[in-house]
Design a protein around this nucleic acid. Sequence first.
DNA 1: ATTAATAGTTCTCAAAACGTTCTCACGATG
DNA 2: CATCGTGAGAACGTTTTGAGAACTATTAAT
Lengths: 204, 204
Amino acid sequence: MIDALPLTDKQRLTLDFIERYIARHTVAPKLQEIAEGIGIRSRGVAHRYVQALIEAGFISTDEGRHRGIKLLKPNPQRAESILPMLGRIAAGRPIEAIPGEDQIDLRDFFGHNNFAVRVQGDSMIEAGIMDGDTVIIEFRETADDGDIVVALIDETETTLKRFKRSHKGRYIKLIPANKEMKEMVYEADRVRIQGVLIGQLRKY
Amino acid sequence: MIDALPLTDKQRLTLDFIERYIARHTVAPKLQEIAEGIGIRSRGVAHRYVQALIEAGFISTDEGRHRGIKLLKPNPQRAESILPMLGRIAAGRPIEAIPGEDQIDLRDFFGHNNFAVRVQGDSMIEAGIMDGDTVIIEFRETADDGDIVVALIDETETTLKRFKRSHKGRYIKLIPANKEMKEMVYEADRVRIQGVLIGQLRKY
DNA sequence: ATTAATAGTTCTCAAAACGTTCTCACGATG
DNA sequence: CATCGTGAGAACGTTTTGAGAACTATTAAT
């Protein structure tokens, strides 16, 4: 039974909700709260999902006890790509979550066609992209005006710039975000898009 | 019969879509989603492609189960928090890894005492931290000079600034990275450190 | 300890969504 | 013409989801 037995959509939603609830309140939710949290009205149905999650080995319960749900395996995928998102850091209590937006999920960064590039130079500094930063690129061959792209020029030089077509697509502008640099214009066939910027990160 | 029987265009498209979907969502797509993903409207047709891929040995299904598709030869499983780190994107070959430094590992961001805060305002803009960015904070009560910290002032106001002691520790300077703002000086006991900046990220 | 309120559990009935199978159809190709 | 790759959509059975009643157990207050 090493199989990661698959959860249905609602079961997964239920597990998510329970994890978030416990993270925020330190106690487990009631069935009524679970029901509302996943958008249904029946405690009975919520209970069914909880049972399925026990079956699947994700949680356990003190049978009968109120708020008796316990997490068994802190979901590995979640644990590694989700951070609690906190808003204000208020006086008495150390931290306070922003209602609604309470997690940051980095799985977007790990898509199949994504890769990371270390930035060299200051050409995009006014867009907040600094020398040494890491940018996440989705591998694509097309881009929309305004996207920040990795562009290959004359099959030799690679650069990170904002993309814009001009002259009905016959020319392509590559626009730096740095007042001290000028935008460059190339014939369209000299420029090949390698990917589009979807994220950026930095370590201190 | 070890023949790698050739896939038709649409079958390959279907396989691509399934792989990408699973990579991004961790669960398999529904036939309806496959249909939309490859640009058709009929679940029946999507099902036919799925059958062909089973025949060809690329995937299998839990018959009848929703989202029951499984990849058989999965791509070398990429860890959840590691991205390939690429350097130059050279001419002939589309991409080329930097030798030595070929992965970016985000597990640093997910330590136990870390949390994320969304940045409001432009006070750190010259440090490349812009309004709307997400910063990763390690929960600590002390900081070194030069660290960027989340500071609580007079138990009421929270702010992100560069930290510096002065007057032998009796005063604390909180220094914005924005020419239009002035640094602030407080008696040490009015300022409480909530955490130290260890990372920053942004989604586009 | 008794009670009232609330929570967890079990059950039946039902509908919605999904996978599966099938027929019909169209255009391209040999 | 026959064949292949493609697409739409109807029809059917199964899985998944939902509501709510009825019952039992826990909890907090009297």
